[in-house]
Design a protein around this nucleic acid. Sequence first.
DNA 1: GGATTGACGTGTC
DNA 2: AGACACGCCAATC
Length: 117
Amino acid sequence: MREVDKSTTNFYEQVYAIVRLIPRGRVTSYGAIAKVLGRAGSARMVGYAMKSASLVQPALPAHRVVNSMGLLSGRHAFETDTYMQEMLENEGIAVENEKVVNFKDYFWNPNELADEL
DNA sequence: GGATTGACGTGTC
DNA sequence: AGACACGCCAATC
């Protein structure tokens, strides 16, 4: 676990940094990201940050971030409510009924790259 | 500056 | 299995 800056301003940047590191064809959860940031249990903050991520450039692969159940909870924040699903399917991730199929199998743990942060 | 809100998570009932 | 409750903490009103 790398030491993270406690500055709240950097909190968003930390989130963005991790999201950008998500490999293609993989997904992760808000809780996992929050955990890396030392805010385990505060996954809401991650989601909140992601909401503003739409304004960040380059655009983040936010479609690869879902909740712990693999549900595309943030799909509605995209240009179209189907954009997120289509994007995931385009990367080889099956999405059924608004949630990732075999989510556990596609799950990417950001803790593995904590050293690079 | 207190109250409300939220792209969540885990535990109970 | 599905519904409900509570905690978390920054941002926004």
